[in-house]
Amino acid sequence: MTRQPSAVLFDLDGTLIDTAPDFIRCLNELRAFHSLEALPPEFIRRSVSNGARAMIRIGFGLEQHQPGYLELHTAFLDRYEAGVAVETTLFEGMDELLRSLEARGIPWGIVTNKPVRFAAPLIQALGLDKRCATLICPDHVAERKPHPESLLLACQRAGAEPEKAVYVGDHERDIEAGRNAGMRTIAVRYGYIEEPETVDLWNADQVVNTVSDLAKLLQ
């Protein structure tokens, strides 16, 4: 990266932290409650970025308009809220990356489509709440990503100019949101990507394979 960014903003699930183990645990516990066998972790993992709706779709074959969906969706979210950080961790190497940003005086923040009901206790449990410059969830804005509103609000709260800031994400909507906000964008292949072969088509400014690659790029 040719210049020091004014701020580095991260998507949450699949970019900054590995929430998949708790999604996998909650979905398979709910399936077990309904006398269904556990699904393979990797099958669930690649859909985590699409949230609870995707979990009910792959776990029970139901869409929002179908009978029984709402009860399962509510049960999944209640189960997840009760154990939001049981197995969730920062991705390996991410703490060092964040400390490097902090040491250089570069504010970092989180912009996620995860509701604050889950995101706030999660980052508190991981000890990130006192470190990040801002946490922006759908509750804080009128429009979700890929609309740029949440990213622009995060830049404002971090005291950063959007055109000098960076947004890092593992979903096409993240990259689209970053572009819409006039930010530089980085797509991460290590995240929860349903179709890995499409990452190069997202028009990110850079694509990285690992957290180590991301850290080098942000140096």
Rank of each mutant, 00 (worst) to 15 (best):
T2Q: 15
R3F: 13
R3Y: 14
Q4S: 15
P5V: 11
L12V: 04
T15N: 09
T15K: 01
T15C: 04
D18S: 07
A20K: 00
F23E: 07
C26V: 09
E29Y: 07
A32M: 05
A32F: 03
F33S: 15
H34G: 07
A38R: 01
I44Y: 05
R46Y: 09
S49K: 00
S49C: 13
N50D: 13
G51Q: 04
M55I: 05
M55S: 03
R57Y: 12
R57L: 15
G59I: 03
E63Y: 12
Y69C: 10
E81I: 11
A82M: 04
A82H: 04
A82I: 05
A82F: 09
T88S: 08
L90A: 10
F91G: 01
E92P: 07
E92C: 11
G93Y: 07
M94W: 00
D95T: 03
E96I: 12
L97Y: 01
L98F: 00
G105N: 05
P107V: 03
W108Y: 00
W108Q: 03
V111L: 08
V111K: 04
V111D: 07
T112W: 08
F118M: 00
F118G: 00
F118A: 02
P121R: 09
L122A: 14
A125V: 09
L126Y: 07
L126Q: 05
D129R: 10
D129F: 12
D129M: 11
A133V: 08
T134I: 07
I136Q: 02
P138N: 12
H140W: 09
A142R: 12
K145A: 03
P146I: 06
L153V: 10
A154P: 06
R157C: 06
A158Q: 04
K164R: 15
K164H: 13
A165W: 02
V166A: 10
G169R: 02
D170H: 01
T185H: 06
I186C: 08
I186P: 00
A187G: 08
R189D: 01
Y192L: 05
E195M: 13
P196L: 09
P196C: 06
E197C: 08
D200K: 12
L201T: 15
W202F: 11
A204E: 05
A204H: 08
A204Q: 10
Q206W: 10
V207M: 10
V208C: 09
V208R: 01
V208Q: 06
N209D: 14
V211Q: 04
D213H: 12
A215F: 02
